[in-house]
Nucleic acid binder design. Structure first.
Length: 298
DNA sequence: TCCTTATGTACAA
DNA sequence: TGTACCTAAGGAC
């Protein structure tokens, strides 16, 4: 169930359990056997996310022969300043991938576990990723270079995205899923943020105003940070929650409250119109024709 | 037990 | 635009 918030949360969860100590790595499924063998016994130096991409950093353990490391060179990561090739495991969950954590002792893995990481206290099992590969620092940089700004990355802002959106004839719904333009937004946040800002998903990017885009960006910063904190997507404002409006809560396998995502043919919580759905670029789009009217001309 | 579906992406034609 | 890829859950039989 991965949009950007999931991946940033996974980076935090890896750091909490593994950062700074040696980790055992294995690939019970076998498809990542070579990569797992290369990082087995190394120290996880950090874990970070950009959009839906997860990067787990590894370096050799320090020994008593190693010189002490002093700031500012360690940057919290002595292994990267000692001339060793620092390695990364690049993970992309795709549509089906999952990462599950548990306390030690780890149970016997099933044969779908692509990568198991373990230390004396915890384990993590990766299943079904679209990508799990060992990469270099240069290869990692290339991935960052082809991704747009991420609402969850400190220091990123929406300006770079706006430069492309404001010149594009492509619909805003398609642009929001284009990871080169903005990284981390998936099908749920796309549908929900357009609803929250009353924007017709079919409007061309260049018909948005700067003010509208800035509001969308800052709303994504807010919503996705909440998503990291709660580990789920909730997009309904307090005054529109089931308790506030006296309607039954959503019964669904995703948990969070939403306005339009996967609510096709149901009534809009706010205006009562029937929520619509349509295929757009091989994904299901959801919107409310009442709250997100086409602005004419298009 | 089979079929469908899913919060994703890449590549071919 | 279509299709391939990866997994698991839920529903229909």
């Amino acid at each position: 169930m991965p949009e950007g918030h999931t991946i940033h949360r996974l980076a935090l969860d890896h750091r909490a359990r593994f950062e700074g100590g040696p980790v055992r790595a294995s690939s019970p499924q076998g498809k990542f056997a070579d990569g797992a063998a290369l990082v087995d016994g190394q120290v996880m130096t950090t874990a970070e996310a950009h959009g839906k991409h997860l990067f787990l950093g590894f370096g050799p353990p320090r020994t008593s022969d190693d010189p002490p490391v002093s700031p500012p060179f360690d940057r919290g990561d002595p292994h990267r300043s000692r001339g060793y090739p620092h390695r990364w495991i690049h993970v992309h969950l795709g549509l089906f991938g999952k990462l599950g954590f548990g306390p030690a002792p780890a149970p016997p893995p099933t044969d779908t576990v692509r990568l198991r990481l373990a230390n004396p206290a915890a384990y993590a099992d990766l299943r079904g990723p679209t990508t799990c590969a060992l990469i270099t620092e240069d290869e990692k940089r290339a991935i960052h270079d082809r991704l747009g700004p991420d609402p969850l990355r400190p220091g990123d802002d929406g300006t770079r995205a706006w430069q492309r959106i404001s010149r594009s004839r492509t619909t805003i719904a398609a642009l929001l899923l284009d990871q080169k333009i903005i990284a981390g937004v998936g099908n749920v946040y796309r549908a929900e943020v357009l609803f929250r800002h009353h924007i017709d998903p079919y409007r061309p990017g260049r018909d948005l105003t700067r003010t509208e885009w800035d509001a969308i960006w800052s709303d994504l910063v807010f919503l996705m940070a909440e998503g990291v904190r709660d580990n789920r997507i909730d997009t309904v404002r307090p005054e529109h929650l089931p308790e506030a409006m006296g309607r039954p809560p959503r019964v669904d396998d995703h948990g969070g409250e939403v306005y339009v995502y996967r609510r096709a043919h149901q009534d809009c919580h706010l205006c009562g119109s029937e929520i619509r759905t349509a295929g757009l670029a091989a994904r299901n789009l959801f919107w409310c024709p009442g709250c997100q009217p086409s602005t004419g001309g298009g």
